[in-house]
């Protein structure tokens, strides 16, 4: 469903992606692993259209999207959970949750979200950034699921969070996967990624150097952890 070919991207003048190519099939959970600065987040931001200075091809459901403005890409069913979570201080929890328009049939109704995250209902009227880090991450993922995406882009969803919350996010991703939503995940947490993903791409210096099956990642966990320096 997602096909990226020869993707180059630039941050201002710095050339961040050097010909990335990857495929994500419908219903798959695929992880990008790599060191800081390898271009993982840049890849997600290029797909969702936040980075405009780019070359190459990105196809979603067989349609080219690399020239589309960001809001159209979102309306085609791509939901983005950024690394810094993107919770607005000037919006209440409820306003944060309901900001993006619903775009797909698989949209989670608010009742399902609140059943899973009762805290979001309790704090619905508080400013979004008064939530704890873990709660903000839940809000960011819930906000994406409410739109009913066909492709979910998750950037470092477990970074800096307590083990119990990491486990909750793992269960959530497995639930999303059962719903048939395709997920492209960025994570340095190899152990976490291996529990939720079907496949992995290893990124080095703005390129994808290796495609790994999940079993390979589990076998080579120590080697990968050492390489990533985490």
């Amino acid at each position: 469903m997602l096909e990226v070919r020869e993707l180059h991207a630039w941050y201002d003048e710095s050339h961040a992606l050097h010909g990335v190519g990857l495929d994500v099939g419908k219903g798959e959970v695929v992880t990008l692993v790599g060191r800081n600065g390898a271009g993982k987040s840049t890849t997600l931001k290029s797909i969702v259209g936040i980075i405009r200075k780019k070359r190459g091809s990105i196809r979603l459901h067989d349609e080219p999207i690399e020239r589309q403005p960001s809001h159209r890409i979102a309306r085609m069913g791509v939901a983005f959970v950024p690394e810094e979570r993107g919770i607005y201080a000037g919006l209440s929890v409820m306003e944060n949750l309901t900001l993006p328009p619903v775009v797909g049939a698989s949209a989670w109704p608010l009742e399902r979200i609140f059943a899973l995250f009762p805290r979001l209902r309790e704090r619905a009227r508080s400013p979004g950034t008064t939530l704890s880090g873990g709660e903000q991450q839940m809000l960011a993922i819930a906000r994406a699921l409410r739109t009913g995406p066909s492709l979910l882009l998750l950037d470092e969803p477990t970074e800096g969070l307590a083990p119990s919350i990491v486990k909750a996010i793992r269960d959530l991703i497995l639930e999303i996967k059962r719903d048939g939503i395709t997920v492209l995940l960025v994570s340095q947490n190899v152990r976490f990624a291996a529990k939720v993903s079907d496949r992995h791409y290893l990124m080095v210096n703005g390129r994808i150097v290796e495609s790994l099956a999940n079993a390979q990642v589990i076998d080579r966990e120590h080697e990968l952890l050492e390489y990533l320096g985490v």
Partner: peptide, 25 residues
């Protein structure tokens, strides 16, 4: 109002708001 929430969101972070499907332009 929801329209106001969109305006506040676009004021705080226009790029991200655009990526959430809102035509900020």
């Amino acid at each position: 109002t929801p329209l106001g929430a969109k305006i506040r969101a676009a004021t705080e972070n226009p790029q991200l708001t655009e990526a959430f499907g809102i035509d900020v332009s």
